[in-house]
Structure formats: C-alpha cells, structure tokens
Simulated assay, not measured.
Amino acid sequence: MTLRIDMHSHFFPPIGREEAATLDAQHAPWLRIDADGQRGMIMTGERAFRPVYRALWDPVARLEELDALGVDVQLMCATPVMFGYRYDAAGAHEWAMRMNDRALELCAASHGRLMALAQVPLQDVELACREATRAHRAGHRGVQIGNHLGPRDLDDEHLVTFLAHCANDGIPVLVHPWDMMTDGRMKKWMLPWLVAMPAETQLSMVSLILSGAFERVPKSLKLCFAHGGGSFAFLLGRVQNAWEQRDIVREDCPNPPVSYLDRFYVDSAVFDPRALKLLVDTMGEDRVMLGSDYPFPLGEQKIGDLVANHAELSAAAKAKILGGNAQRFFDLPDLASARAA
C-alpha cells in the first residue's frame, strides 16, 4: 500500500488563559476545552475565535483518526493565530520556543508518526533565524511562516534574509496564508478564507518571482506553499503574459515566471480533481505533496483520497504526491517502522 504522509496539518497545545497571558493578557490565543474534553474553542483573550475538537490538541485522538483514514505520518504546524507576529520580539521569541517545545511533546509518544514544523518570531530576523535553527536541531522537520509580516511581502529583504538562512541551514519552509487582505467587503460566508486566502498565497509566490528575490536566495532552499499555491496555477499564464508584454513587470525579474517553477513546491489541498490535474500539470508530479489542513472543516476530510482516486494520475505520480515527495523534501528517515507502529 502506498505510503501516505500528510505534510500540512495543524495543532494547538492545551494552553490556558493564564499561560497565554504571559504573552498578552488581552489578545493572546488560548484553548478553552469543554468539560467532556471532546470539544473546545480557540480564544483570543475573551473573544471566541474558532470551535475545535479533541484531535487538535490530543495526539492519542489524532492517531486514532489517522489510523481510520489510512495516514501513516503527519507533520503538524501551528494554527496561524499562534504566530505572535504582532508582539514585541522578545516576548514572541519566548512564546515561539515554548510552543515549539510543546509541539515536540505532542509528537514524542507517536513512534515517529507525528512530526512538527516550528514557528518563529518573524518580526525579528535574528531571533527568527536563531529559533529556526534551535528547533530544527531539537527535532522539528522544518518551519512554518506566515506569508507576510504586516505590509511586508515575502520579497522584503527582512524575509528574504530569513529564507536564505533556512536555505543555508537546510531547514525546509512551509508558507501559510494568514491575516487575509480585506477592506471589510468580505463580511460573510467565510469569504476571507475562500477568496482572500488563495490570493494571499499567489501574492507571495508572484512577489518572490517578479521582485527578483529568487535570484538572492540559494537554490538549495526547500520552500512549499500551502493550499495548492492558492490561485497561482490558474493565473500563471496571466503573469507570464504580463512579463512578456510589459517592461514594468519584468524590470526586476530577469527570467520568465514559468522558469521559476523548480524553486518551490505546493501541497495538494485543492479539493477538486480538475484543479489537482492543473496543479500537477503546472508544477510537475515531483513538486506536489499531500497536504490536508487537518483537523479543520475546510481541510480534506478523507486525507489523500483526492490524489489516490484521481482518474488521470499515474500510479507513480500518486506514490510521489502521497508520500515520496514529502519524504525527500523533509529528509525523513525510513518510515517503515512508523507504518508498523
């Protein structure tokens, strides 16, 4: 049976309001767990942020669900509300270290089936680099960062410096959209998540390409974008055409946009077989990895089934996307023992 490695899932450790208050008593995120221990609410201060259930914080419950879904290994990363980019760097650094240590604790008893990606205090590039390296040496398989830092997109020199550090230290990077662009028009129906979130991801990818940032980052960087790269694959032709026709588009980008597709990966969380086919045709079968966004309702509920049941993907392509690409990207050890466990 084909190995399934889900490289995009989230966790939130069972931290109470008192612990969160060490970061910010008014707004820091914490977890309110119901009396039955099965469900809860992510809180930001006194405000309810998102209803959640036990698998988000309980590795035993998570592994039970992964068994039922046929997932062998899962990489967990912070729920983006945990990033802490709005706070002073020293406090965010301490918070990131604590959350990263908690993540490894959640993984410890899983016999290698649960692994973690670290978070970093991205607002201070020196501290972010320091924590990325510390966490990687402690056992994290890479880092997850938000796709922007306030008004700074990924092409900002501050963030390019961090990406270069990860390249030089051999630390894989997952870029996740967060704090979505909206001027108040997207009021209902989760439109920021449905419209702005894919746009945020495409903005990050195109910013790196057209700014010339990829010329300043070592080619050794292992970089992946969540949610299938958002709207990138569908609109790449528009970007390519603009580069060819307008000098203001290509003034900082020395090579055609399509030539940079070998500089990054995407996950498979697109939820539609036609979208997945376009994604694989665009990126190539070696640069798409299984990602579910588990355990949230907007994630793939039957993890890996979109890939495994796709009528137009070869068996070899499916094996790469379901597990082989992630095993190479994250330099994972032999996972036969994890499957046996």
Rank of each mutant, 00 (worst) to 15 (best):
G170C: 03
V125H: 05
N168E: 15
L149K: 00
P177F: 02
A128L: 12
C166M: 11
K187M: 13
N168G: 14
P121C: 10
D183R: 14
Q144L: 15
H176K: 10
E131W: 10
M181K: 12
I145W: 04
A135C: 09
L159G: 02
R134Q: 07
L117M: 15
K187G: 09
L154G: 04
D153S: 05
V120M: 08
I145N: 03
V120N: 07
N147E: 01
W178M: 11
D156M: 10
V175M: 04
G146T: 13
V143Y: 08
I171N: 03
G170W: 06
D156L: 13
L127D: 08
V125E: 09
V143G: 04
R134K: 02
G139C: 12
H165D: 09
D155C: 14
H136S: 11
R185C: 11
H140Y: 11
G142V: 12
A132P: 02
L163I: 07
L154Q: 07
F162W: 14
A135Q: 05
N168A: 14
C129W: 05
N168H: 11
R134L: 12
L159Y: 05
V125N: 07
G139M: 00
A135N: 11
D153M: 12
A164H: 02
R137K: 15
L122F: 10
R141W: 00
A118W: 09
C129S: 07
Q119F: 00
N168S: 12
C166I: 05
T182W: 04
G150N: 11
G139T: 01
P177E: 09
R152A: 15
D155Q: 14
P177C: 02
R137I: 04
A164Y: 00
A132Y: 05
V160R: 09
V120G: 01
T133Q: 13
L159Q: 12
H136W: 13
N168L: 12
L127G: 03
H140T: 01
R137P: 02
H148R: 15
L154E: 11
A164S: 14
P177H: 08
D155E: 14
A132C: 08
A138S: 08
A167G: 08
L117D: 01
P172F: 10
R141M: 13
V143T: 07
R152G: 01
G184H: 06
P151W: 11
N147W: 09
R141L: 07
L122K: 04
T182E: 13
H136P: 00
A132I: 12
W178C: 09
A135M: 10
D124M: 12
N168Y: 03
E131Q: 13
T161R: 14
P172V: 06
V173S: 06
P151S: 10
R141K: 15
G184T: 06
H165C: 11
H165E: 13
D124W: 01
V173R: 02
G184N: 04
Q119K: 00
L159E: 03
C166D: 05
L117C: 02
I171R: 04
M181H: 14
E126Y: 02
A164N: 03
R152F: 14
G142T: 02
G184D: 10
G139Y: 01
A164T: 13
L122D: 12
V160W: 12
T133V: 15
W178I: 05
Q123I: 09
L154T: 01
L117S: 05
P151G: 10
L117I: 02
E126G: 10
T161C: 13
W178S: 11
